[in-house]
Design a protein around this nucleic acid. Structure first.
Length: 181
DNA sequence: AAATGCGCCAACCGCGTGCGC
DNA sequence: AGCGCACGCGGTTGGCGCATT
């Protein structure tokens, strides 16, 4: 188990001073070796805590604030496709972090998704069949089978989907993009 | 005005994985 | 090949603020 050891380490909310210290250190040495960062920066924090703070708030390319409709829609679609793979979803949504997306899901979208589940649905199997046959005819090769199959293997295997033709296209594009990341 | 409940968000925790030695 | 360290991920918790009674 990773153990950042010291029981007298600071916990809880970060102060502006701590943020500044961390940001300054990372700007100088880069976002790696978080244990070293924690020790050498003089912050009385564990490495994990520093990493999380940097990734979620101090990184220059992270966007704060309300999610747009487009982002919300994207999250809903991606979640339906791959489940609670927050880091994967975050990679598809520029400037958003996995933690932020996870929180937004839990706070706002879970209920919405529940409602949508009750709409007329087709099975995942049917969707896959559709998708692969279309790909075969296009000669497009994808190695993302695992992402769909694997994405749902922990639990909700019989999850239902309501997938229109346009959505199917969208999913397909998503799978193609996956190879670039 | 005070008490209580609820929702949201920041942060922590435990576990799995990758990588270097 | 095995071991230990560091990192990344997803689930969960704690605390704050707002709404309701």
């Amino acid at each position: 188990m990773e153990n950042d050891g010291n029981t007298s380490l600071n916990k809880g909310a970060w102060s502006a001073d701590e943020d500044a210290t961390l940001a300054q250190y990372v700007a100088l040495h880069g976002p790696k070796r978080w244990k070293c960062v924690a020790i050498k920066s003089g912050l009385n924090r564990c490495g994990k805590s520093c990493r999380l703070r940097w990734l979620n708030y101090l990184r220059p390319d992270v966007k704060r604030g309300n999610f747009s409709d487009a982002e919300e829609d994207l999250i809903l679609r991606l979640h339906r496709l791959i489940g609670n793979r927050w880091s994967l979803i975050a990679k598809r949504i520029p400037e958003r972090t996995d933690n932020e997306i996870k929180n937004y899901w839990n706070a706002h979208l879970r209920k919405k998704a529940k409602l949508m589940e009750k709409l007329p649905a087709i099975s995942l199997a049917a969707m896959k069949e559709n998708l692969w046959s279309e790909e075969a005819s296009n000669g497009t090769e994808s190695q993302e089978t695992e992402d769909i199959g694997g994405g749902n293997e922990d639990g909700d295997d019989n999850e239902s989907f309501d997938v229109s033709a346009s959505e199917l296209n969208w999913v397909k594009r998503f799978l193609e993009l996956e190879e670039d990341v």
